[in-house]
Simulated assay, not measured.
Amino acid sequence: MDNKLPLKYMNGESAEEYKKALGAASIENIEPLVQYIQKQKDFIEDNRNMF
């Protein structure tokens, strides 16, 4: 939030996909995790009426 990055909503339905991306990522290659996060919905955009 301090960096003004969008909040991403990660639900339990994608937990296996998250674990797979996390397992495939490494210090040298974070791309699997980045791709997973980019596919997630923007929490604030999806819940504008709450703000």
Rank of each mutant, 00 (worst) to 15 (best):
A21C: 07
E31T: 14
N3V: 01
N11P: 12
Y18S: 05
S26T: 11
K8D: 00
L22I: 10
G23E: 02
E17G: 02
E45T: 03
A15T: 09
K41A: 08
D42Q: 05
I27R: 12
N29A: 10
I37M: 14
N47K: 01
E28Q: 10
E13T: 08
N29R: 04
R48F: 10
N29M: 14
S26H: 04
L5Q: 13
M1R: 09
L7K: 09
A15Y: 07
Q35A: 13
K8R: 05
S14Y: 03
Q40I: 02
M50G: 09
E16P: 01
E31S: 15
I30K: 01
Q40N: 00
I30D: 03
L5H: 03
S14L: 07
L22E: 09
E28A: 14
M10S: 15
M10L: 15
A24G: 05
K19A: 07
Q40P: 00
G23A: 00
P32Y: 07
L5R: 14
I37Y: 04
M1S: 04
V34Y: 08
N11I: 05
A25V: 00
K8L: 14
M1C: 03
I27M: 15
Q38I: 12
E31C: 06
R48W: 07
L5G: 02
E13C: 01
N3L: 03
D2F: 12
Y18F: 08
P6D: 13
Y9K: 03
M10Q: 11
A21R: 02
G23C: 00
G23Y: 00
I30V: 10
Y36K: 04
G23R: 00
L22R: 06
Y9I: 07
E13K: 03
A21L: 13
I30S: 15
P6N: 08
A24L: 09
Y18M: 07
Y36L: 07
N47M: 00
L5S: 09
L22G: 07
V34F: 11
I27S: 13
E16R: 02
A25W: 01
L22K: 12
D2W: 11
D46W: 03
F43E: 10
L33N: 02
D46A: 09
R48L: 14
P32I: 10
M1L: 08
L22S: 05
G23Q: 00
G12D: 10
S26V: 09
Y18E: 13
S14C: 14
E16I: 00
A24H: 01
F43V: 13
P6H: 11
Y36T: 03
K8I: 10
L33Q: 06
F51Y: 13
S14Q: 05
E45G: 04
Y36N: 01
F51S: 15
L33A: 12
Q40Y: 03
N49P: 02
I30C: 10
E31Y: 11
K8H: 06
S14G: 01
Y36F: 13
N49F: 00
Y18V: 13
E45W: 01
Q38Y: 09
F43C: 08
E17A: 08
K19L: 15
P32C: 08
S14A: 02
K39I: 15
D46L: 04
G23D: 04
P32G: 11
V34H: 09
G12S: 06
N11L: 11
M10N: 14
S26A: 13
Y18H: 04
M10K: 06
Y9E: 01
F51H: 12
K20Y: 03
E28S: 15
K20H: 00
A15W: 06
P32W: 06
D46V: 06
E13P: 10
E28G: 11
A15S: 08
